[in-house]
Design a protein around this nucleic acid. Structure first.
Lengths: 191, 191
DNA sequence: TAGTTTTCTTACCATAGGGTAAATTTCATC
DNA sequence: GATGAAATTTACCCTATGGTAAGAAAACTA
C-alpha cells in the first residue's frame, strides 16, 4: 500500500483526507496462479494495482486464439480500461500468471474520486499521458520492427519476465506464434 | 474556432475567462498540401486542431521507410504527443496531405493551462481516456486481424479518407506495403 | 523415482507479404 | 489534347511466419 501511496504522492499533492479515502477503497489481496480477476464478456468492477507477481490481460478472438495486450508486474496498474471508459462489458480477460499480491479498487469509486478530490485529476492526467506514450511506442515498434527486434526490446522492457510466464504468452504479446518465437530464440542463441 | 470551443464545452464547464484564454493562445491558419508542421528530430512547439483537411503523422525508420502513426481529419488533434509528454525532440513528422485549415496552439501554453484553469484537467483526462481506448483497439486489431480485415475496418473508421490521401499512406498505416494493399484491393473488387 | 502434464523445439509444407522492377493508369500542368 | 509526373497495379521470386504434428525437454505430482 505504501508503494502505491508514494507513487501517487510523487505526481500530485495528496491531502491526508485524500490519502485516507484511497486507503478506504483499497483492498489488499493475495491471488493464485490461474485466478481470473476479470472475465471477457462480463462487467468490469475493479481496477488492480500489482504489488508483486505477474498478471496479464488478453482477449480471445473468433478462432479462439489468445492475444496478450498487456503484462503487469510490480507497481503497474491493470484492468480493462476500454470497458471502464466506454462503460461496456469486458473484451479482455485478466488472469494471474503467478501467485500475486494486488490492491483491488472498485473502478466506479476510483472513477468518482475526481469529483471528491479534484487534485487526482492531475495525477490521472499524467498517468494517462504516460500510458498514451507507451501505447504510441508499442504501435510504432509493431510497424517498424521485425519480430526478432521486438522480442529483444521486450526482454529489455520486462527484464525478468521470462521467469514468470511461459514463452507462448510472450509470443502472443509480440503477435507471433510460439513456434516462430522458438525459432527466433534458437537464432539468437547461435549468436 | 467555434467547433473547438463547443467540443471543449461538451466535456467540461468552461468559464468565460477560460474560453477567452483558449482563444487568446489559438492561431487559425491555412496550410497547403505538403507543408510540414513538425519535423522529426526538431523541437515540438505546437499542437494542432484540424478544422478541415487531412494531416498525417509519420516516422522514418533507419532504412528510410515511412510509417504512418495517425491521420487527423476534421475535429481531431494532432501533434507529437510522445515528444511533448517526454519533453524530447520529435520522433514524428507531421505533414499536410491536403490543403487544410487548422488551429495552432503553443504546446507549452496549452500544457500550462491546467495550472491556470484546473477545470481543464477533467477535459484533458477524458480526452486521454478516449485516446488510450483508441490506441488499445488499434493494438488489438493489429494483433488479431489480417491485413484485409484491418483495411476494411480502416475504411469504416475513415469513410472518405481515400479521396484525401494516396493509398501508400494507408498501407503504411496498416503496416503493409503499397503492393500488398493493391493486391488486397484487387481481391476485394472481385467480390 | 516414475509417471503425467506442460512447455518448448523441430520438421514439414503452405501462404501472406516483402523487395525489386516494370507496365499501366491516373492526375496535373502546360 | 500532349507531356510529364505521380500513383497504382502486376509480375517475379524470396523470406518470414503460420498451421499441423510430432518429438524432446522441463516441470510438476504422486
Amino acid at each position: 500500500m505504501e508503494d502505491l501511496i508514494n507513487k501517487i504522492k510523487s505526481s500530485t499533492t495528496l491531502s491526508a483526507k485524500a490519502e485516507e479515502y484511497v486507503v478506504s477503497i483499497a483492498k489488499e489481496k493475495s491471488v493464485s496462479k490461474g485466478d481470473v480477476l476479470i472475465r471477457q464478456g462480463q462487467a468490469v468492477k475493479n481496477t488492480y494495482f500489482v504489488k508483486d507477481g505477474c498478471i496479464r490481460a488478453y482477449c480471445i478472438d473468433k478462432k479462439g486464439k489468445e492475444h496478450t495486450l498487456q503484462f503487469a508486474i510490480k507497481n503497474w496498474w491493470i484492468s480493462d480500461f476500454m470497458a471502464i471508459y466506454n462503460n461496456e462489458l469486458s473484451t479482455l480477460t485478466i488472469e494471474c500468471i503467478t501467485d500475486s499480491n494486488i490492491i483491488e479498487f472498485n473502478a466506479e469509486k476510483l472513477n468518482g474520486i475526481y469529483s471528491i478530490f479534484p487534485e487526482f485529476e492531475a495525477f490521472q492526467r499524467k498517468n494517462l499521458e504516460r500510458h498514451v506514450v507507451s501505447l504510441h511506442k508499442r504501435i510504432l515498434n509493431q510497424l517498424q520492427l521485425t519480430a526478432p527486434e521486438r522480442y529483444d526490446l521486450f526482454l529489455k522492457q520486462y527484464p525478468d519476465i521470462e521467469q514468470y510466464t511461459p514463452n507462448y504468452h510472450i509470443a502472443s504479446y509480440l503477435g507471433i506464434t510460439q513456434q516462430s518465437l522458438s525459432r527466433i530464440r534458437v537464432e539468437n542463441a547461435k549468436k
